[in-house]
Design a protein around this nucleic acid. Sequence first.
DNA 1: TTGGGTGCAAATCTTTTGCAGGTGT
DNA 2: ACACCTGCAAAAGATTTGCACCCAA
Lengths: 130, 130
Amino acid sequence: MAALKHSRQRDAIKSNLMHRRDHPTADMIYADIRKDYPSVSLGTVYRNLSLLTEIGEIQRLASTDGAVRYDGNLQPHDHFICTRCGRIADVEPADRTALRMQARQLDGIVQDCQVNYYGLCGDCKTQEAM
Amino acid sequence: MAALKHSRQRDAIKSNLMHRRDHPTADMIYADIRKDYPSVSLGTVYRNLSLLTEIGEIQRLASTDGAVRYDGNLQPHDHFICTRCGRIADVEPADRTALRMQARQLDGIVQDCQVNYYGLCGDCKTQEAM
DNA sequence: TTGGGTGCAAATCTTTTGCAGGTGT
DNA sequence: ACACCTGCAAAAGATTTGCACCCAA
């Protein structure tokens, strides 16, 4: 395992992700970071997001729409994805008892479990009705 | 809403997806279909997979590894994703009571809920130990 | 006949990578 | 000094799209 060195860019990326509540793509983080560090490159953002994911400091979210999204919230929680506008909102974690029972019966080692709700968010529900 | 016309290609794509138990990417389906219809194009596969997803005949699976995967199994079920080999296996659906309670409190309309387990599948667990 | 469907190829978008030079320890 | 990290740009991978032609209803 390679030794980690401190890097200003990695700090900025992590800090940016921790301070926002949406669940940005690499590109969204890149755009935001560049306001403070105009020289950062997209490749560096990708490299660091992968690195941070590997060492467990952030989480990669599964998605249906092409681009992978990242989450800096390490507390257990679920997600609500609006199928109309694509927004991803954090949701209080549901009770995992039933899921854990299921996981125990699988042939393998379950390390994590993600719950995603899909539907229309409050805003889109209103607009859909018009 | 545009009227749907029958198409041999769409049939082949749907049929292919329904008859396999893995959770293929568009490209995997394309490769398979071409054995029977060598003239099918990748664009057509993508167009039809999106169409079938929209009308609810198949399901798009959220993923963390770049390529979107498709599932022709419409029965309620969950997924176990191996973080080592990428395999996605169907899992008996866990009891949804707790999840439904959570969903009811959200500001919006929840139409669907996906549960993903992540970890090492049986095969990879064995190999990891060596 | 007519509008949806298709093949093909180019375009777009997302993510990865090779390389030469920069930087933390 | 020695790795690790970075910026840049090219490459690779995934998906979409414009267009002319084809086909089902």
